[in-house]
Structure formats: structure tokens, C-alpha cells
């Protein structure tokens, strides 16, 4: 039974050996003379202007929170869409109610100003 995994094992061994060889070639044959320019971090096209471990604005959290909620309705919509032919009218009504409740939440969120950035 374990024999089925033999190719995987061989593949893993090859991958490790191959990677080790490539890295050691680079280490031994390449020239190594670092300077400050080379070691400094860079962003594409322009100079780095702040540390990447900065603090986020709390408003990102709010957007993330709202996103999570509305994101997961899709988890219910996809399976529903696959079988909507078979479940008929009741299915459509149920999904309509579900979306209606979501819309209520959305209206509330909109009127509360949670979608505005400022």
C-alpha cells in the first residue's frame, strides 16, 4: 500500500538534492562583496520610504470586518446555484429571503456611514 507513495518519496529526495546542489554552487562560485546599496531594501521603481512593519489605520479593520460578513454569503450562493433547477420555487424563495436579510444589514451599514472612508 505504501508503495503507491514511492514516486513521491523519490521526487522529494530529488528535489532536496537538486536544491542543495544549486544553492551550494551559488555560494562557492559566486563573488561576495556586499555594500550598503546592495543590502538596502527596495520597492519597485522608487526608494523605500517607511518600515514595512507600520501600524495600520483602524479603518482598515472596519473594512475587513464588513468584508468578512458579506464575503461568506457566496459560500451559500454557490451550492444553491448548482442545484437551483432541482429545488424549485421553495429554493428561490428561501434564497430571496436570505438575500433580503443581507440587504437589510447592508442598508443599515450604509446609513450608519460605515462605508465612508472619512
Amino acid at each position: 500500500m505504501l508503495l503507491e507513495y514511492l514516486p513521491v518519496l523519490i521526487f522529494l529526495i530529488f528535489a532536496i538534492i537538486f536544491a542543495a546542489i544549486m544553492l551550494s554552487i551559488g555560494f562557492t562560485l559566486g563573488k561576495n562583496n556586499p555594500n550598503t546599496e546592495k543590502n538596502s531594501p527596495y520597492e519597485c521603481g522608487f526608494e523605500a520610504f517607511e518600515d514595512s512593519r507600520m501600524k495600520f489605520d483602524v479603518r482598515y479593520y472596519l473594512v475587513a470586518i464588513l468584508f468578512i460578513i458579506f464575503d461568506l454569503e457566496i459560500a451559500f450562493l454557490f451550492p444553491w446555484a448548482v442545484v437551483v433547477h432541482e429545488i424549485g420555487f421553495i429554493g428561490i424563495i428561501s434564497m430571496a429571503l436570505f438575500l433580503l436579510i443581507l440587504v437589510v444589514g447592508f442598508i443599515y451599514e450604509w446609513k450608519k456611514g460605515a462605508l465612508e472612508w472619512d
Binding site: I65, I68, I69, L72, A75, F76
Partner: peptide, 9 residues
């Protein structure tokens, strides 16, 4: 999944 999404929100 949905409940934990709401919960973490």
C-alpha cells in the same frame, strides 16, 4: 464557516 466569520468580525 459563516458563524466563525461573524464571530471573528
Amino acid at each position: 464557516l459563516t458563524v466563525i466569520a461573524a464571530e471573528s468580525a
